[in-house]
């Protein structure tokens, strides 16, 4: 493997990680855009999503020893798993909003954010206590197809992650830009009070934002499992922080920004790990977070929602 091959491989890895972070970052951005709330529960909605995906795969008969699927069966299992995971995660997000956050809607200060930390802790520990601390093997229904590019390898799982992420992000962009509900979301992000006076049901918009964001986090959880072949109660924190950094880097509240930020963070993680050392990757990423917040708080693409004061 030459040095070029190494970088090519890290590019492939980085884009895959980035696609996953982008899915997760979108959830932060959707909620922040509307409520100006950093949703720490999102970290572990992602983690729960990966366990839901694992359960769904098992349900569809995909176990570590099962032979890989092909053709229609593969497509059906993947789509089924994705659908179950996204709906379940989305509902989890909505439940969190209804039970823990709605009563705090008009409370000033950090109460809502502290609540999301609490919810995140609850999810984390319920999974830890219920399913144990050991990492769980994440079976893959994918055949072991690989395309060598020089010394680097492009596997089917990476291509799948790219395609699924691109489709979901395109669908979200279309939804936000061109549907009636999407327009209501954008209006609410600009000014909830004015949106309410124009007849928009802000409450429904908020539920929708939590549903969509959490569903995308669930999809991210599935991607995580397929990429790393394991899942564990612990995966939410690091991935969540990186995805949050991605959202801030791109410009929080900004949908294309979250995607761009996700890709950049994924590439930094892969390349930075290569160039410096994997053990310093988080220090690099957090330093970027601090630098962006201090010097360019609106992010690369700028904040879409204005600062409400």
């Amino acid at each position: 493997m030459t040095l070029t091959d190494v970088y090519l491989q890290q590019l492939i890895n980085g884009l895959s990680l980035g696609a996953m972070y982008a899915l997760l970052a979108l959830g932060f951005t959707l909620v922040y855009g509307i409520l100006e709330l950093i949703n720490f529960a999102h970290f572990n909605v992602f983690m729960v999503g990966s366990f839901v995906a694992l359960g769904a795969l098992n349900l569809f008969g995909v176990t570590p020893n099962a032979p890989p699927l092909a053709g229609l069966a593969l497509g059906a299992v993947l789509l089924g798993t994705l659908a179950v995971t996204m709906v379940a995660s989305g509902l989890l997000g909505v439940a969190i909003e209804r039970i823990a956050l709605k009563p705090l809607r008009n409370v000033r200060g950090p109460a809502a954010m502290i609540t999301t930390i609490g919810v995140s802790y609850i999810l984390f520990n319920v999974v830890l206590l219920g399913l144990g601390a050991d990492s769980k093997n994440f079976p893959s229904p994918l055949p072991a197809l690989a395309l060598p590019i020089g010394g680097a390898v492009l596997r089917l799982r990476e291509v799948l992650i790219w395609i699924v992420s691109l489709v979901l992000m395109a669908a979200l962009t279309w939804f936000v830009q061109f549907t009636r509900m999407g327009k209501a979301m954008r209006a609410t992000a600009q000014d909830p009070e004015a949106a309410r006076m124009m007849g928009i049901e802000v409450d429904r918009v908020i539920i929708l934002a939590f549903f969509l964001g959490s569903a995308l986090a669930g999809a991210g959880g599935l991607m995580f499992g397929l990429y790393y072949n394991f899942t564990s109660y612990i995966i939410g924190f690091t991935a969540g922080l990186r995805a949050f950094t991605a959202a801030v880097l791109g410009g929080i509240g900004n949908v294309p920004g979250a995607m761009l930020g996700g890709i950049i963070i994924g590439l930094i993680e892969a390349m930075g790990g290569q160039l410096v050392s994997a053990s310093w990757a988080d220090v690099i990423i957090f330093s970027i977070l601090v630098l962006v917040l201090v010097f360019r708080p609106a992010g690369l693409l700028g904040r879409v929602a204005p600062n409400k004061s």
Partner: peptide
């Protein structure tokens, strides 16, 4: 801890 945080805030 998690439950306490949520209950106290609510």
């Amino acid at each position: 801890f998690g439950i306490l945080l949520v209950l106290m805030m609510l």
